[in-house]
């Protein structure tokens, strides 16, 4: 255990005053928050609020115009952090490589970095696919799978890294409610099993309230509120209440 009582594998993530613009569009306007080690932190907000851009910064795929991201108090991009902190990201589109089979996708990290012999990789791939309930589909192609199955394969691919930090971008988008529940369960299991720090970006309120330790509400590139699911429900902020109460069936009343 670390001094703060967290699991030794968990990492702390700190985002400080992050700004990002794409040409004239100011997407992130000074975003700051801290994710504690082993915490399941949900970034929730409407479409276009800057959630995915923020997640891509934490994944190291985008560089901020100003501000910084610290992992275990070290700036992201620091070679020591890159070496010590194993990160994995599950993309909104699953982002499986369509030219590889499911098995090759899941084992890609191990095979490309030559970390294990092929026979051992095959065993690990089978184990990870079993964990996400997709046993025996190693030889199938990503294009032959449903959206939900592709996302679970992407989770298996993330598990192979034995990640300390896992980033989920809209994990339940384009999924039916049953599959969305299954993905939510996978995220919770990942937290229990790996003690990983997990950051989930979503606009799915049900998912956020079901899995989050804390939720950050983001809108127009600014954090509006950070708190537990209960605290966010009780918030009097009109923008948060509008997002939380928006229901399609109210349209019938007009």
């Amino acid at each position: 255990m670390k001094d703060d009582g967290s699991h030794p594998e968990s990492v702390k993530v700190e985002v400080r005053e992050l700004h990002k613009s794409f040409r004239m569009l100011h997407v992130l306007k000074g975003v700051s928050f801290t994710v504690n080690p082993g915490e399941l932190f949900v970034l929730m907000g409407p479409s276009g609020s800057g959630k995915s851009v923020l997640l891509k910064h934490i994944a190291g795929l985008l560089r901020p115009d100003s501000g910084e991201i610290l992992i275990e108090d070290q700036p992201l991009g620091n070679p020591e952090v890159e070496k010590r902190c194993r990160r994995a990201m599950v993309f909104q589109s699953a982002a499986l490589l369509t030219s590889l089979t499911v098995g090759e996708n899941v084992g890609l990290y191990l095979s490309e970095h030559q970390l294990k012999p092929p026979a051992e990789i095959a065993t690990i791939v089978a184990q990870k696919l079993d964990v996400v309930g997709l046993k025996g589909i190693e030889d199938r192609w990503p294009g032959d799978l449903s959206g939900g199955m592709q996302k679970r394969v992407a989770v298996a691919r993330a598990l192979v890294v034995e990640p300390q930090l896992v980033l989920f971008d809209e994990p339940t988008s384009e999924l039916d409610p049953v599959m969305a529940v299954a993905i939510g369960e996978e995220i919770l299991k990942l937290k229990m099993r790996n003690h990983a720090t997990i950051i989930v970006v979503t606009h799915d309120r049900d998912l956020a309230f079901a899995i989050a330790d804390r939720i950050a509400m983001i809108d127009e590139g600014r954090i509006l509120f950070i708190g537990s699911p209960e605290e966010i429900k009780r918030s009097s902020n009109p923008q948060i209440q509008k997002f939380l109460r928006a229901e399609l069936n109210t349209l019938k009343q007009h």
Binding site: K56, A59, G60, L61, E82, R87, A88, M89, F91, Q92, S93, A95, L96, L97, T98, S99, L108, Y109, E112, H113, R157, V161
Partner: peptide
């Protein structure tokens, strides 16, 4: 076309997150 498709559908980002 192949690399462009991988770029558009985030496959290249996925490679980067795996340090590939």
């Amino acid at each position: 076309a192949e690399i462009g498709t991988m770029q558009v559908y985030e496959e290249i980002d996925a490679l980067k997150t795996m340090d590939i």
